[in-house]
Computed example of a mutant assay.
Amino acid sequence: MKLHKVTAASAAAFVLALTATACGGGDKDGDSASGGGDKITIGIKFDQPGIGLKEPDGSYSGFDVDVATYVAKELGYDEKDIEWKETPSADRENALSRGDVDFIAASYSITDERKEKVDFAGPYLLAHQDLLVRAGEKVTEGEDLNGKKLCSVTGSTSAQNVKNDFAPDAQLQQLGTYSECLDGLASGAVDALTTDDSILAGYAAQEQYKGKFELAGLELSNENYGIGVKKGDTEMVDKINKALEKMVQDKSWDKAVEANFGSNYENESAPKIGDIVK
């Protein structure tokens, strides 16, 4: 009988422990993956004015920041619940697979190659690859870019496009950030910075650069910006898509465009969810 009582007590304690574990705080993924948890971690760029920028006072600004903040709110998170994490172009897929972030809004173009590694919601913006050049140094679409010194960022579709499509013999310099490329353009080390026109417009609109640089006005590619999530998380994709649709419907999308891009940028209309322009 004594043995029976001890076993019963042990069993009760074991059940109680299981119940406590199941009802406990859980891990980060359990808190945030489907919304409504204590915190949500969002990957953005820290060095792209107009898109994703960490300000000197520690705050964050840009179109991607506004989009991500709106989406997070629709998922059940206040702005104070957002943890912003810098995600350079070359590390975006890894950041999602590692679980470092819940989703990424970082000028993240949807491509077939990337869709093999991550899932995308959106698109939420259609941009075009262009060139940023020094003021007065005009570049036309018919000009041979193969002799130019071009700069872009490692891991970006812009760098891939230079090699694969419009200027395979250009002297392409790939750096870690667009800010480094901009320094090279300012010093004369490179002839042009090439990436999405939305990003270039943000740089050109900065007070310290006004009048120094200008967009060439070339539409060298179509860049469909999507929000990246971990591969297989279809529930998160569906929730983000609904949030993006609402953002367009209530005109918050238009307000974000007006607030973040300079007058040099002529944006396309908001794309429809799932409508990828090749």
Results as ranks from 00 to 15, higher is better:
Y124A: 07
A127G: 12
D81N: 13
K73M: 06
E113K: 09
L125W: 01
R98V: 13
E83Y: 00
K85N: 13
F120I: 03
Y124F: 15
V71M: 04
V133H: 04
L131P: 06
Y70D: 05
L96M: 13
L125V: 08
E93K: 14
D78I: 00
V101L: 02
V133S: 06
Y77C: 01
F103V: 11
V71F: 04
W84N: 03
V133L: 08
E79Q: 13
D91E: 12
E86T: 06
V118W: 00
L75T: 05
F103L: 03
N94S: 12
E86R: 10
E141C: 05
E113M: 01
A135T: 09
L125C: 04
Y108E: 15
L75D: 10
E113W: 00
L125K: 11
A95S: 15
E74R: 14
R114E: 07
D119E: 08
Q129T: 13
V71T: 07
Y124P: 00
E79T: 13
D78C: 02
F103M: 05
V118C: 05
A105P: 06
T111F: 04
F120G: 10
V133E: 03
D81A: 13
Y77P: 01
A121M: 06
K138Y: 08
W84C: 03
L132C: 09
P123N: 07
G136V: 02
R114L: 11
A90T: 13
V133N: 04
R134M: 07
L75G: 08
R114S: 12
T87D: 03
E74F: 00
W84D: 06
D91P: 01
L96T: 01
Y70P: 00
A95I: 00
Q129V: 03
A121Y: 04
I110N: 07
A72R: 05
T87Y: 07
Y77M: 09
Y77L: 07
R114M: 08
L75I: 06
T111Y: 04
D91Y: 13
A105M: 07
R98A: 14
L125P: 00
E93D: 15
L125T: 03
E83S: 11
T87V: 15
K117S: 09
L126S: 08
K73N: 13
T87L: 10
E137G: 02
G122R: 12
P123S: 05
E116W: 02
D81K: 05
